[in-house]
Amino acid sequence: MSDRLTVLKTYKLYVGGKFPRSESGRVYEVTDSKNKWLANAPLSSRKDARDAVVAARKAQGGWAGKTAYLRGQILYRVAEMLEGRKDQFVREVADAEGLSKSKAAVVVDAAIDRWVWYAGWTDKVAQIVGGGNPVAGPFFNLSSPEPTGVVTVVAPQESSFLGLVSVIAPVIATGNTAVVIASENSPLPALSLGEVLATSDLPGGVVNILSGRTAEITPSLASHQDVNAIDLAGVEDDDLAKELEVAAADNLKRVVRPQPVDWSADPGTHRLTAFLETKTVWHPTGSLGASGSSY
């Protein structure tokens, strides 16, 4: 048997359906929980973040315009692809979080299940948060949820895969597009997720994944006028969180504040409904004729 050359994987960003390196050409070393070198990950710059916003904006109308049913099908497809690459994710999660293979497998299974759970929500969320409103007048009054738009998601730092899935899936399930900042120290599962999304019928630009220094990339995204909301799940520094919230207020972004979350617990619908806007339509019913009956 001949000795094989080691094939090292080049981890790259996922932006607009493509896998670019950082525009800056920079990388940083990613280590496992015992400080052993795993790979070099791209160290994204503000410009990469801006490019990701452009890609997300471009994709937003098309993604929101797809039927909720189709979005559900596509998200389910993502879960199928994750299932097929489970071994890789188990290895990456085990390295990143210092878990044994069997414990990592439990985490990955939970992440895939969560993805399926959110896939099911795409065509049900409207029934939960929308519907007819009783009003005092001859009107049909209907409310329906619409996606907020482009959402910046700062992924959880510790839960590099289950936490990641738990913040991305609810955002895109309802028709938003996402710019995701991966966990700073454990970005590899996120970058590999990009490869899964690229092969799952998910249109390019719906999810864009950046790796790098959270404190470097997030301020320009928080102040970006073309970002509609920001999820600060992975911002652990209180001063930074405050700074980002202030910057986000400038164009009235929706903000989900960082809070302790047990990612393995039932997520509820909080993150699913956090990035929705309610559209309400008043429709006069009038009268159907001499009989005086209305609709």
């Binding site: 801006r50 904006r57 102040s223 970006h224 006028q225 073309d226």
Partner: peptide, 9 residues
Amino acid sequence: TGRYSGPDY
């Protein structure tokens, strides 16, 4: 302004 702008503006 130092902030990235967008097509809404």
